[in-house]
Simulated scan of single mutants.
Amino acid sequence: MTECAVILAGGLASRMGGGDKGRLMLGDQSLIERVIDRITPQVEAVVLNANGDLSRFEDLELPVVADSVPGYAGPLAGVLAGMDWAAQHGYDWLISVAADTPSFPLDLTERLSEHNTPVVLAATPDPTRGRVPQPTFGRWQVALRHDLRAALNDGVRKIRQWTQAQGETLVIFGEDDFFNINTPEDLAWAEQHLK
Rank of each mutant, 00 (worst) to 15 (best):
S14Q: 14
R15E: 15
R15K: 12
R15T: 15
M16Q: 08
M16K: 07
G17E: 13
G18M: 08
G19Q: 08
D20W: 07
K21E: 15
G22L: 03
G22V: 05
R23G: 12
L24N: 15
M25H: 14
L26G: 08
L26Y: 06
D28Y: 02
Q29V: 01
L31S: 15
L31F: 11
I32P: 03
E33L: 07
E33T: 10
E33A: 08
E33Y: 07
E33C: 05
R34P: 02
R34S: 05
V35C: 10
I36H: 02
D37P: 00
D37V: 07
I39D: 00
T40K: 03
T40R: 04
T40G: 02
T40Y: 03
Q42T: 00
V43D: 11
V43M: 13
V43N: 00
V46D: 00
L48Y: 01
L48V: 03
N49W: 10
A50H: 01
A50Y: 00
A50P: 04
N51A: 11
G52W: 04
D53S: 03
D53F: 00
S55A: 14
R56K: 07
R56L: 08
F57Y: 12
E58F: 02
L60I: 04
L60S: 06
L60D: 13
E61T: 02
V65Q: 03
V65A: 05
D67R: 01
V69R: 06
G74V: 09
L76W: 03
A77Y: 06
A77R: 02
A77V: 11
G78L: 01
G78F: 01
V79P: 07
V79L: 11
M83N: 14
W85V: 11
W85P: 02
A86M: 08
A87M: 06
A87Q: 10
A87N: 14
Q88Y: 11
Q88E: 15
H89Q: 13
H89G: 12
G90L: 11
G90P: 06
D92Q: 13
W93L: 10
W93V: 12
L94K: 05
S96L: 04
A98P: 01
A99N: 08
A99F: 10
A99Y: 08
T101K: 02
T101N: 12
P102V: 04
P102F: 03
S103N: 08
L108C: 11
T109R: 01
T109L: 09
E110S: 13
R111L: 09
E114G: 10
H115K: 09
N116I: 03
T117M: 12
P118D: 15
P118W: 09
P118N: 09
V119G: 13
L121E: 14
L121H: 05
A122N: 00
T124F: 04
T124S: 14
